[in-house]
Each structure stands twice: as structure tokens, then as C-alpha cells.
């Protein structure tokens, strides 16, 4: 006989809320990518203003988790999921923060002389985006190989990050007067690399949720 019907509904709502937040974040990455590519101030403003919504989602999910722990004393797979979600939403929120941070630098770049960004950015964003979407998919499907693949893909982002830094340094040497513009690209480069790191942090929780395996 099935029991704890209300509790089951609450767990479903928690999953639903995480998915809703994930959807907002993948959309934010998409908008950030377009804003950076076309140095679009309108899209950048939209991202900065939308960040509060994602912050609120994070706080609301955390509170929901705390309430569930207090009320229902979850154990086994329920506990693993709730404890992991409390950590995961913090990383997801940081990804959204970095979209907003990048949007801030796009606004700054739009006010100065147009300077071509490092060519690695396109591929970096593409890989980082796939890491975020796959980590969310693996959270839903508890697909451990997919989560581990996300962890491995971070290596490519790190390599592109280093190559982009070298490229930016070379450009600064060629055109020292554009240092302000390139400084913004240095920070954007770091934010993209950090977003991939946050996707890895989320992916590392998936084996724990699925099987209880926790690596120190």
C-alpha cells in the first residue's frame, strides 16, 4: 500500500522547482552567448535584471529543502536527493550570476572601441553550455556515465581558457591602448571557465544521488 502521499507530492514539487530553475539558467546562458557575440546592451540588461528571479528561486528551493528535512526526516535516497539539491542549487545560482557578470562586461565593452573577442570563446561557451544541459539531464535521469562525461569535458574548457588567455596577452602586446577592452575579455574568459566548473560540481553529486557513492 502506498503511503505518505503528501510527502511524495512535496518531493515531486522539489524536483519540479529544480527543473524550473535549470530551465531559467540554460536560457540565461543562451542569452549571455547572444549578448556577448553581438555586444547587445538590451540583452545584457535583460540578463542583469533577470538574475534576481534566479536568486529567489535558489533561496526558495533551499527553504523548501530545510522544511522537508524538519517535517519529514528524509532518509536513504530521499535524503540523498534533498541534501544534494541544497548544494546543487548553489552552483546553479553561481552559473546564473556569472551570466549576469558577463552581461555587465558586455555593457562596458559596448561603450568602448569595438575589439574582436578571442576566437576560443565560441567553442568554450558551446562546451560549457552542453556541460550544463547534460548535468541537468543526468540529474533527472540519474545517468552516472553522462555525469562523469561532464566532469571529463571540463578539461577541454580549461585548455581553451589557457589558449584564450595567451591570445588576449598577444593582442594586448599588439594594441596596448585597447587594454581596457581586453581586461574585460580576461574576466569574461574566467567567468566562462568557472561556469564549467560549477557544472562539474553539480555533476559530481549525481552518483551520490543515484547510488549513495560519496567520494572524499
Amino acid at each position: 500500500m502506498s503511503t505518505r502521499i503528501q510527502y511524495m507530492k512535496e518531493l515531486e514539487k522539489l524536483n519540479h522547482d529544480v527543473l524550473e530553475m535549470s530551465t531559467e539558467i540554460t536560457e540565461a546562458i543562451e542569452v549571455m552567448s547572444l549578448a556577448l557575440e553581438s555586444c547587445d546592451t538590451k540583452l545584457s540588461m535583460q540578463l542583469i535584471e533577470g538574475d534576481d528571479v534566479i536568486d529567489h528561486m535558489e533561496r526558495s528551493i533551499e527553504k523548501y529543502c530545510i522544511d522537508l528535512v524538519v517535517k519529514e526526516a528524509p532518509i536513504a535516497s530521499d535524503w540523498r536527493r534533498i541534501a544534494s539539491i541544497m548544494r546543487i542549487v548553489s552552483d546553479l545560482e553561481r552559473i546564473a550570476d556569472h551570466c549576469s557578470d558577463i552581461a555587465g562586461y558586455v555593457l562596458k565593452l559596448s561603450k568602448g572601441k569595438p575589439v574582436i573577442p578571442p576566437f576560443q570563446f565560441g567553442e568554450m561557451i558551446q562546451i560549457m553550455k552542453s556541460m550544463v544541459t547534460d548535468t541537468i539531464t543526468s540529474f533527472i535521469t540519474l545517468d552516472i556515465p553522462m555525469a562523469l562525461d561532464v566532469v571529463e569535458r571540463d578539461e577541454f574548457v580549461d585548455q581553451l581558457f589557457t589558449a584564450a588567455m595567451d591570445e588576449i596577452c598577444d593582442k594586448v602586446k599588439e594594441s596596448p591602448l585597447d587594454i581596457d577592452q581586453y581586461a574585460s575579455y580576461i574576466l569574461i574568459n574566467k567567468y566562462i571557465e568557472r561556469m564549467a566548473d560549477h557544472a562539474v560540481n553539480v555533476a559530481k553529486w549525481i552518483p551520490y544521488i543515484a547510488s549513495g557513492e560519496y567520494k572524499i
Binding site: 500500500m1 502506498s2 503511503t3 505518505r4 510527502y7 528524509p74 532518509i75 536513504a76 535516497s77 530521499d78
Partner: peptide, 10 residues
């Protein structure tokens, strides 16, 4: 065991 301790049946 999982179903019992998490209250899925009882």
C-alpha cells in the same frame, strides 16, 4: 528496504 524506511509502504 528502501521503500519501507522511506515510507513508500507500511
Amino acid at each position: 528496504t528502501e521503500e519501507y524506511i522511506t515510507g513508500r509502504f507500511g
